[in-house]
Nucleic acid binder design. Structure first.
Length: 287
DNA sequence: GAGATTGCACGTATTGCCAG
DNA sequence: CTGGCAATACGTGCAATCTC
């Protein structure tokens, strides 16, 4: 069964009802401005959308970002198939007024969606266990096979929910594909659409730190710093907690990385750890 | 109109990268 | 190694919309 190009073909392990965790490649940006408006001009109407059938290690975010000013990258972009007006006409003027339902309207184009964005006839377009590559800055992204792909294809998300109902989410394109704020909003929106509609999640839920862990930290910190260095602290912490069950809690404690621990210590360092105190979270105020 | 959908802010957490 | 920050995931609440 085919999945739209935005959905990476996942290794056929998709068992039914269970949260499927797809890892999402990471981070950092450093993009170049002045891009795709020029590319939009070259928008062709060819609907051929390349299929990315590569079961390879997920590429890191930084590796997927293409620099328009880099000659080699520019060549890849030029060779990439462009998603056409079947999605929406990139060259057409935007519809007047703000986009309905989108509060950050200034970041996105109010386009008139094409036929593909309304077509529910092809079952194969509606996976129930989709995989997804987050948007990265720039209209085109580099794929693991070395070619470039048009991220415009990822704007229309077609899914089959847990009740078998089909959904289409047509997410407005960013006015500026290099605007990280727009890309971030787009990613948040699409990830949530997938999370709420299907059983797919891109990251496991993270257990919060519990009192026992925080007490242990207090005992192993000196003036808010690891008594014997971070390396040692991380190893000791995980020896003590990882995989173990703690009375009063369910399941077993997760492995914590140095990043996690240093964030926890840093977050409450001033008020608590630095003073040898166990952090106590303020009660949430609900209305 | 009432319930179902959606978008998005918030708070909690992790991971990747980079500079010192 | 460390420290720190950018990017981004998840759960949840809530308001604006949509749908029946």
């Amino acid at each position: 069964d085919l999945e739209p190009e935005l959905l990476r073909t996942s290794p056929r392990n998709t068992s039914k009802r269970q949260k499927v965790i797809h890892s999402v490649p990471g981070e950092h940006s450093d993009c170049t401005k002045e891009q795709d408006n020029a590319i939009d001009e070259a928008d062709s109407d060819d609907e051929s959308v390349q299929q990315t059938s590569i079961a390879q290690p997920a590429m890191k975010r930084s590796e997927r970002i293409l620099d328009f000013t880099n000659a080699e990258h520019a060549k890849l972009i030029a060779a990439a198939p462009k998603v056409g007006s079947n999605y929406y006409d990139s060259d057409a003027d935007d519809l007047p007024g703000p986009i309905k339902g989108i509060s950050k309207s200034h970041l996105f184009r109010n386009v008139a969606w094409g036929a593909y964005a309304k077509d529910k006839s092809n079952d194969a377009d509606f996976p129930s266990h989709p995989s997804f590559r987050q948007f990265v800055p720039g209209r085109f992204e580099r794929l693991a096979d070395g070619t470039a792909a048009d991220q415009k294809a990822k704007l229309v998300i077609k899914l089959t929910d847990t009740d078998g109902k089909k959904h289409i989410y047509a997410n407005p394109p960013p006015r500026d594909w290099n605007n990280q704020e727009a890309i971030t909003a787009l990613n948040k929106r699409t990830v949530q659409q997938i999370r709420r509609t299907t059983e797919v999640q891109f990251r496991a839920r993270v257990p919060e730190y519990i009192d026992a862990e925080r007490k242990w930290l207090v005992a192993n910190l000196t003036a808010g710093k690891p008594t014997n260095g971070w390396k040692r602290l991380v190893a000791d912490f995980n020896n003590h907690f990882a995989g173990k069950a703690v009375p009063g809690t369910t399941g077993s404690r997760p492995v914590r990385t140095q990043s996690s621990l240093s964030k926890e210590v840093g977050r409450f360092g001033a008020e608590f750890y630095g003073k040898g105190l166990v952090p106590v979270l303020a009660k949430k105020v609900k209305k």
